[in-house]
Each structure stands twice: as C-alpha cells, then as structure tokens.
Design a protein around this nucleic acid. Structure first.
Lengths: 233, 233
DNA sequence: CCAAAAGTGTTCTTTATACACCCATGT
DNA sequence: ACATGGGTGTATAAAGAACACTTTTGG
C-alpha cells in the first residue's frame, strides 16, 4: 500500500514544503531571486528557493531557514503568501507548499552570496524564464500581492538601503506599480506622511543637483499607526 | 520511532487539515458558524468547522466538502485565509491547517440545517465563546480580512439574499466595518458605481415608506472590472 | 553659462462630507 | 395628519492632478 520507511501513520499524509519569492530592487528594476535546480524533477530548470518543513519548526521558520541557506540573509521582511495544494503539483507525490514572499536589500545579498554551490540569479520581471512546478503561478500571485500591498503598507523601504533619495523611492514605486508618478506630487505626498527622517547627507558625484538622503522612521510609523494613520499611496 | 500504520514514509510528515470561518448576516448582525466538538481534544468546546484533507482533493475542495457536510450549502464564496503551522497548535500531533473564510446567505443555511447530529450555531461577533485549538486566532484574522476586503471588492453581496434594499446593504457594511455611514452619501456612492440592478419590487409591510429592491449585477461588475473599474467604499 | 534634476508653490478638478428638503407609506 | 424612513439635491471642505518656477550641481 505504501513504500517502506520509518515514519508510519494510520492515514496518508502529504509532504509539506515552503517556497519563497524573494524580491530585490537594484535601483531601477524589480528583481526576483531564482535558483537552478540541481536534481530531478525539473533538473536544470529555474525555480523558487524552498524545501521541506521539519517537524520542530513552523512554516515561517522553515522559510527563513531556507532563505538563510540560499542568501545568507537573516531578519528580512517575510510574509505568508498562499498555500498551494493541487493534487498533481509535484511529480514526487502529494506535496503541499506554503509559499512566502520576502523583501531583501539586494546589496546585503550580493555580499554574502557565492558560498553556495547552487546556481542562483536575480531576474528582472521582464526576463523571467519558465519555472519548475507551479512556481510561475506562485510568482504571478506574489507580484500581484506586492503591487497591492505596497500601496497601503510601507513595505517598499524593505527593498531599499537604509539611506535613500526621494528619487530612489519613486523609482521603486514606479518599478513595482508599473506606472509613472509625478515627481513633485510624490515628494509632497510622502513628506506629508511624516515617516521619513531627512538626513544632512546628499548624493555624491551626480552630474546635476544632488538629492537629499532620507531614512524610514519605523518608530514614528508605529506611533502614527496606533493613532489610526494609514499609509496610502 | 513512530506508531504503527499502513502509510510509511522516509521522513516524518504533518497532518493537514482545513478549517473554515463561515460568515453570515441576519439583517442586523454579522455572525459566525461554530460547531461544538463531540470528541476529544477540546470535547464540548466550540470550534471552527473543518477536517482532514484527503489525498485525492486539494485544500479548497476539502474546505468545500467540509462546508457542505456542515451546512448543506454548495457553491458559496470561499477564499483561502492563511495557513497555521505552529508546532504545538494541536495536542494530537503536528497538524498544519489551511484556513478558509466563507460567506453564505444565512437563510440558505438555515433551511438545510438540522440534518446533522453535531451541535452547530450562529454566533454574533460580540458573543463568541473561547474556541478550541488556535481557532480564536484564526477567527480574529478572518474578521480582519473581511473588514479589509469588503472595502475594495464587492463580496458583501455574498452575504445578502438575491434581492435586498439599500438599507440592507448599508446595515451589512455598518455591521462589518463597525462604523456609522451617512445613508444619503452611501446611496449615492453605491448607485454611482452602476453595479446594482434596481427592481420594480419594493419592501412590503413596512411601517413607513418601502425601500426599493436591488440585485447585484455580477456581469456588469465583471465588465467594469476589465475596463479598470475598482470597487471601493 | 548650460543642462539636468532637485525642491517648492499654485491652480484647477475631483471627491468626500455634512446636512436640508421632499416623498411615500402604515397607523 | 403624523411619524418614520426612503430618495434626491446642494454647499462646503479636503484631496488629487497638472504644471510653473526656482535652486543646486557638474561640466
């Protein structure tokens, strides 16, 4: 009735994995981290990083563990996306996958990568190859979620370095939302929210007027949130 | 290492269940359907309806099956909420639960209930007892999701009968969002969206001027959506 | 001085809010 | 006729979109 193994149950159980859609931003384009599969099934194809859940960890811990193993980054923004449970989504058998999406500061990653044997790469949205399993579907849903969420929660800052210019922030929003925003109205709208700390520092070596650096004020945002403030772009 | 059973695997696997938060609206208050557990663990306590996933169904099919068994209703609105995977969320062992939330027309349910031996009941938001497992937590998240979603997607109609008055609709929104809405502005805003079909029929036996009945125009809404229209209250 | 982009201000349009008034219906 | 709530209108305030002007910086 079933293959041999050490773990026996009265009723059949699916395998449970987590998969992670990791977004990064390189200053002009939104990117996703994919890994090339080294083993069957789908050997040689690109896929979302992920793996099997252990019995002593919950799904988020599993996703964070996998993320750390892949990118060397800890403590990034991570949020559960959706759980995929199609009967035939994995040729190895019945696999339920709890998908997460993560936002990383892309430079943090590039520093600590390379130590892994696996082939990992950042892909722009426009050049994403066909993916293993139902990962195309997961990725599409993740992009949609990111697009929606970025408008009413200040998660964009998770993709930028600590210091950024107003132009960086606008480029980020334009890349995610795929639309043009009026520079001046954007500036005013963001500043009116009062969640950015203006620094005295400015850009260097620009062929034009240098932009001021800002920092996201998490504490202030928390305060305002409890008072009923809603981020909205 | 593990108890006996017919299904043996090389690595341990969690059990997978679905749980469902079923919302209804009785004309004045938002309600949730709970069932009283007949067996251990948490025997005698109230809980969300749910059950173990079979190997030949995906999670949504499982949720719909459980829902049908509990309420006798098919084809209601259902949407995945979140997946709960805390290591100790179930005393029976490692159980991952994929939670859904459903919206039903409460009269449909009341007609076809009673055939089930289990004790099921609708509870108003204000009188919800302490629930089994982590179901309190799940319910809180479901309410939050409903509150958020109802503002930018016309899912409220799933809770009303086919025909409803503007007052019914407003009562629904006031109950879900827990705020007062100006009757006249609400009326104008909804009508401007052009997604309601006004019927010639009116309320009967009212001690005052009768309200006109409306119907939600799904087709029109789909059309408008493809043209970029966004429901928003 | 020029080009390019930052930073600030002003106008116009649209949307939201508050509230006044008339209408229909059962008692 | 009157109490109650439906249906429509209008004035005011707030928010959003479009765009003009000034400032800073490197070449």
């Amino acid at each position: 009735m079933s293959k041999a193994g050490n773990y026996c149950y009265e009723y059949p159980r699916p395998m449970v994995t987590t998969d992670c859609v990791i977004f990064g931003f390189d200053g002009s384009a939104l990117k996703v981290l994919l890994i090339e599969r080294g083993i069957e099934p789908y050997k040689g194809q690109w896929a979302l990083p992920g793996g099997f859940m252990n019995m002593e960890e919950d799904a988020e811990q599993c996703a964070r563990r996998e993320l750390f193993e892949e990118t060397g980054v800890r403590d990034m923004f991570i949020e559960q996306l959706y759980t995929y449970s199609d009967v035939n989504r994995d040729p190895r058998g019945r696999v339920v996958s709890i998908a997460y999406f993560a936002l990383v500061k892309i430079l943090d990653y590039e520093l600590s990568a390379g130590d892994d044997a696996k082939n990992a790469n950042w892909f722009s949205m426009s050049e994403i190859p066909s993916l293993a399993f139902d990962h195309d579907h997961i990725l599409r849903m993740a992009i949609q979620r990111l697009k929606g969420k970025v408008r009413y929660q200040p998660i964009g800052f998770e993709l930028l370095e600590e210091k950024f210019t107003m132009r960086d922030l606008q480029n980020l929003y334009e890349a995610i939302l795929e639309l043009q925003i009026d520079r001046r109205n954007f500036h005013r709208k963001i500043m009116k929210m009062d969640i950015l700390i203006p620094l005295d520092e400015k850009e260097a070596n620009t062929p034009h007027r240098a932009g001021r650096y800002f920092q996201f004020d998490r504490k202030k945002y928390q305060e305002l949130t409890t008072k009923g403030f809603n981020f909205e772009l």
